[in-house]
Design a protein around this nucleic acid. Structure first.
Length: 146
DNA sequence: GCCAACGTTGGC
DNA sequence: GCCAACGTTGGC
């Protein structure tokens, strides 16, 4: 799961009440569907820093609530406001995540050095999705890279 | 700031 | 349903 660290960092997550936070602001249907359909309480995810000088994985978090309506879509003052969303038919959902731990920074270039990760969705050419699945194989390898 | 890649919009 | 135009993402 990608975040721009200037917007929301892993330290922000760790410092949040109970070290939990809603993953707000996802406005892409595929990313939304991954949260809605594939993420369950207890699932783990890498925290990935994007759009920053040193993009890469910086830690691990855990899903602590399944997908529900993103409140920012209803807030006209929010940058994530969606005039087409209604309370009865929300368009945008998110899970809640909990801080697990920080990892050493594993940058994009280092990730790309591993043959095993060549088919990881995050690293695919042209991938812009901010949420992508991680296979067990990829998860284990990245843990071993620490 | 550039630009490749991809998603969304809206006219037809 | 097609597709051109436009917007966004995100590494570099």
């Amino acid at each position: 799961m990608k975040s721009e660290p200037d917007e929301f960092s892993i330290d922000d997550l760790a410092a949040a009440p109970a070290s939990r936070a809603p993953w707000t602001g996802i406005r892409n249907y595929q990313a939304r569907n991954f949260m809605r359909d594939d993420m369950r309480v207890g699932d783990q995810a890498f925290f990935y820093n994007s759009s920053c000088p040193e993009p890469g994985i910086v830690g691990i978090m855990r899903v602590c609530r399944t997908a529900y309506a993103d409140a920012t879509q209803f807030d006209a003052r929010s940058e994530y406001f969606d005039p087409k969303a209604t309370r009865d038919a929300p368009r945008w959902l998110h899970v809640d995540v909990a801080f697990v731990r920080k990892m050493r920074w594993i940058g994009l270039a280092e990730l790309r050095q591993h043959q095993v990760l060549a088919d990881m969705r995050l690293l695919q050419r042209g991938n812009r999705l901010s949420i992508t699945p991680v296979s067990a194989k990829h998860w284990k390898l990245i843990l071993r890279m620490e």
